[in-house]
Write a protein that binds this DNA or RNA. Sequence first.
DNA 1: TTGAAAGCGGTACCAG
DNA 2: CTGGTACCGCTTTCAA
Lengths: 344, 344
Amino acid sequence: MTTIRDVAERAGVGIGTVSRVLNGSQGVSNRTRERVERAIAALGYRPSPAARALSRGRASTIAVTAPFLTRPSVVERIRGVVAGLDASEYDLSLATVETPEQRQRRIVGLCQRDRADGAILISIPPTPDELETLRTVGVPVVVVDAVTEGLPCITIDNILGGRMATEHLLELGHTRIAFLGDAPDARFAFTSSDDRRAGYLAALADAGVDADPDLVVSGEHSREAAAELAGRLLDRPAPPTAIFTASDTQALGVLEAARARDLEVPGQLSVVGFDDIEIASFVGLTTVRQPLYETGRRAAELLLAVLEGTGPRTGARIDIPLTLVPRLTTGRPRTRATRRRPAH
Amino acid sequence: MTTIRDVAERAGVGIGTVSRVLNGSQGVSNRTRERVERAIAALGYRPSPAARALSRGRASTIAVTAPFLTRPSVVERIRGVVAGLDASEYDLSLATVETPEQRQRRIVGLCQRDRADGAILISIPPTPDELETLRTVGVPVVVVDAVTEGLPCITIDNILGGRMATEHLLELGHTRIAFLGDAPDARFAFTSSDDRRAGYLAALADAGVDADPDLVVSGEHSREAAAELAGRLLDRPAPPTAIFTASDTQALGVLEAARARDLEVPGQLSVVGFDDIEIASFVGLTTVRQPLYETGRRAAELLLAVLEGTGPRTGARIDIPLTLVPRLTTGRPRTRATRRRPAH
DNA sequence: TTGAAAGCGGTACCAG
DNA sequence: CTGGTACCGCTTTCAA
């Protein structure tokens, strides 16, 4: 392995000079610089990241922590982060958190100085304890898809999103509108589902529609669980004419449930999702679009700014706008003549 | 920031001893060990990864290089890698390659010793040049979803997969079977699409069915491009009764094209995909299932074994079995009475 | 069993 | 403008 010393020797200079050339520092004559550059090229020399990290006290790495790569929305955000970091000199270290132990390990891991110079937390707001630790260590952190007091956050107005979806359904004439979201999860303090539900309730209230508590259900964030839940909703004596779900993934589950019961969508059931993941357009799913990729990219850019000294280290909140994307799963309600049996 | 010296001082021992405790080395009395451990806990000390990397000559990091996080199959493989690495002491450094420049940078980046101790290349077989470089540097590499002479590879039999899909269609009675795959891409030497086509052709030949060159098309690997391509196929005077695509993503595009033309699936058109990505079951897509997650996990385990000295550094090829998953998009062919016009 | 000291490969300061 | 040198924080060898 060739080191900076080899280069210095071959170029007939001191290692300090080589280092200067390497870092583009001022104060190297052109002649010398060229000589060094030739030596570097000839030897195919590449500086050791570890040595550099140790010496500079920074790792040139950014840690990205996210839950569940199974969620398209998370992946899309990560894509954005990757893109935002691409032009930079930073490597991206990826960790996923699916269990409390992992959470402990990952978040505390960030606190190791010189493991990462900064972190992007996707959908994982740090607990007060974790926040405290992060703060004392001084690693800059940007939070995506969650709000954490005192940390820059890239987020959306979930309450508004919930309103948008619900108002869309109300405008179409629905009044029996169900909400299907995530069950509270002690491990992660995901709040987006709750906020979307709050928006849903607010929209109903504003419209003077009584919210039927029986129409608000929640479960595991998966297509299967959503299908199950939706099935129960649809099998009620007085089923909803529309279902708003906290995510597109869950909306797909609802569509499955409807299909299993031979229900026409949107004729007999309207469905609104949230996120606008890639498959939503294929399915023709009406949804509340949030620019997922964008949030990741912005987070990366923001963190980079913070690392450069520009940019806020605290509390800035960037709100990304939402759009309702009407597609084929929503329409005017049409009462079902009779209860249907599931198809074959 | 507390260092090993602080710990040593507090415990009243030398730094060598602390290091031994840290690394579980032999030759530390229990009394001393406990004292040191107490000091570590009291100080909340965590060793610096950079210093450790420099000193040990290894980074405790594994580099994962993959193209396009937009492809569900790639993400699923990465999920597997993440899982396979979870219990290990290795961090995962993720890089994506979408352009030739990135490719250069990423793959050469691996050659910086002590940036990564090993690498997993997903769907990106190194060029001979790159292979040579990797080899001289000595970074252990495992290749997933590609075959590279001299490197351990986790792969599937794409030719067989192509056969399986095609034979399924032949058995149903189809003879006008189209193949829709990836256009050759100079940037990456993806071969799976070509291999699947080879299997398709072989199956046709074996069945004594003449392959119609007009029914073999290729384009960009995306739903949109596939929809476009499939549209042209379906608008021919003598359209195919079945289409086998090189991926599920492309199969979705085909389904879109069929839907746009109001074609019944599988009545008027059968569709077989490849991969069995998550959404395939929702769509009811008949497909050739490859255990994507599994390949990632196996790759991680294999690489870990290599790093431990167990495991082959060269040429082992692990072939993961495929399964045909018949769902709702394939059935017996039924000639279309007349050419249909696209529905509004 | 333990402490001291020599690196690991850079960066950056200091004197010249 | 340049060379020499003192660290950066840890691992590991060598004596004691």
